[in-house]
Amino acid sequence: KHLIERYYHQLTEGCGNEACTNEFCASCPTFLRMDNNAAAIKALELYKINAKLCDPH
């Protein structure tokens, strides 16, 4: 559950690194913003595939 919350935060708030290159992070310049419901679904999907989590900045 904690990991899913981290994915959700990364998708909605980002890691804080303006030069982030993680396509699944709101801080990445090319990230496409999504609403909270879509972010919750995506967080579950990312958890299932063990996607990369950013280190908070």
Score class of each variant (00 low, 15 high):
K1R: 07
K1Y: 03
K1A: 01
K1C: 03
K1V: 02
K1F: 02
H2Q: 14
H2I: 15
H2M: 11
H2D: 15
H2V: 10
H2P: 06
H2A: 10
H2N: 15
L3Q: 13
L3Y: 12
L3G: 06
I4L: 05
I4W: 04
I4F: 05
I4T: 15
I4H: 04
I4Q: 15
E5F: 06
E5T: 13
E5L: 06
E5G: 10
E5Q: 14
E5I: 06
E5Y: 05
E5M: 07
R6P: 13
R6G: 09
R6D: 11
R6H: 11
R6A: 12
R6L: 07
R6Y: 04
R6T: 12
Y7Q: 01
Y7F: 11
Y7A: 02
Y7W: 05
Y7D: 01
Y7L: 05
Y7T: 01
Y8P: 01
Y8W: 05
Y8G: 04
H9C: 11
H9F: 06
H9I: 13
H9W: 09
Q10N: 06
Q10T: 06
Q10H: 06
Q10M: 10
Q10G: 03
Q10C: 03
Q10D: 02
Q10E: 01
L11A: 05
L11V: 10
L11C: 05
L11D: 01
L11P: 01
L11S: 02
L11Y: 02
L11T: 04
L11G: 01
T12D: 03
T12P: 00
T12C: 09
T12W: 03
E13D: 14
E13V: 08
E13I: 10
E13A: 14
E13Y: 12
E13F: 10
E13S: 13
G14W: 00
G14K: 00
G14R: 00
G14T: 01
G14H: 00
G14Q: 00
G14V: 00
G14D: 00
G14N: 01
G14S: 00
C15P: 00
C15L: 00
C15R: 00
C15G: 00
C15D: 01
G16V: 04
G16T: 11
G16L: 07
G16A: 10
G16Q: 09
G16F: 04
G16E: 10
N17S: 11
N17G: 12
N17Q: 08
N17D: 10
N17F: 07
N17Y: 10
N17R: 10
N17M: 07
E18I: 08
E18H: 13
E18C: 10
E18F: 05
E18T: 13
A19E: 13
A19M: 13
A19H: 12
A19N: 12
A19D: 14
A19V: 12
A19P: 08
A19Q: 14
C20S: 01
C20E: 00
C20A: 00
C20K: 00
C20I: 00
T21P: 08
T21L: 08
T21C: 12
T21R: 10
N22H: 03
N22T: 06
N22M: 02
N22R: 02
N22F: 02
N22K: 01
N22G: 03
N22V: 03
E23Q: 12
E23N: 15
E23D: 09
E23I: 10
E23C: 08
F24C: 11
F24Y: 11
F24S: 11
F24N: 12
F24V: 11
C25I: 02
C25F: 01
C25N: 01
C25W: 00
C25Q: 01
C25S: 01
C25Y: 01
A26R: 07
A26F: 15
A26D: 01
A26N: 09
A26V: 05
A26L: 06
A26M: 06
S27W: 01
S27K: 09
S27E: 02
S27F: 03
S27I: 01
S27Q: 05
S27Y: 02
C28R: 08
C28Q: 06
C28D: 05
C28H: 06
C28T: 08
C28M: 10
P29G: 08
P29D: 03
P29I: 06
P29Y: 04
P29H: 10
P29E: 14
P29S: 08
T30M: 05
T30G: 14
T30D: 08
T30W: 12
T30I: 10
T30N: 09
T30L: 08
F31V: 10
F31S: 15
F31K: 07
F31M: 15
F31D: 02
L32R: 11
L32M: 15
L32T: 15
L32Q: 14
L32H: 07
L32G: 11
L32S: 09
L32W: 04
L32D: 10
L32C: 08
L32K: 15
R33D: 04
R33V: 12
R33N: 07
R33C: 05
R33E: 12
R33G: 13
R33T: 11
M34T: 06
M34E: 09
M34I: 14
M34W: 05
M34L: 13
M34A: 11
M34R: 07
M34C: 11
D35G: 10
N36G: 11
N36W: 04
N36M: 05
N36V: 11
N36T: 11
N36Y: 03
N36K: 13
N37D: 14
N37R: 08
N37H: 08
N37Y: 03
N37A: 14
N37T: 12
N37Q: 12
A38K: 10
A38R: 13
A38F: 03
A38Q: 07
A38S: 07
A38G: 04
A39S: 06
A39F: 03
A40G: 14
A40N: 14
A40Q: 12
A40M: 13
A40H: 15
A40K: 11
I41T: 12
I41Y: 06
I41K: 15
I41C: 11
I41W: 04
I41L: 08
I41M: 09
I41A: 13
K42L: 04
K42Y: 06
K42V: 02
K42A: 05
K42P: 01
K42D: 02
K42S: 05
K42N: 04
A43N: 01
A43I: 00
A43C: 07
A43E: 00
A43K: 04
A43M: 03
L44R: 15
L44K: 15
L44Y: 15
L44I: 15
L44N: 13
E45N: 15
E45M: 05
E45V: 03
E45D: 04
L46M: 06
L46E: 02
L46Y: 03
L46P: 02
L46Q: 05
L46W: 02
Y47V: 15
Y47E: 15
Y47I: 07
Y47M: 12
Y47S: 15
Y47P: 10
Y47D: 15
Y47L: 14
Y47A: 15
K48D: 13
K48P: 04
K48A: 05
K48V: 02
K48W: 03
K48M: 02
K48N: 13
N50Q: 07
N50H: 10
N50W: 03
N50T: 12
N50M: 08
N50K: 07
A51Q: 03
A51M: 04
A51F: 09
A51T: 12
A51G: 08
A51R: 04
A51D: 09
A51V: 08
A51I: 02
K52W: 02
K52R: 09
L53I: 11
L53W: 05
L53A: 07
D55F: 09
D55Q: 13
D55P: 11
D55G: 12
D55S: 09
D55L: 11
P56Q: 09
P56C: 10
P56N: 07
P56F: 15
P56K: 09
P56V: 12
P56E: 09
P56R: 14
P56H: 04
H57W: 03
H57Q: 13
H57S: 03
H57Y: 13
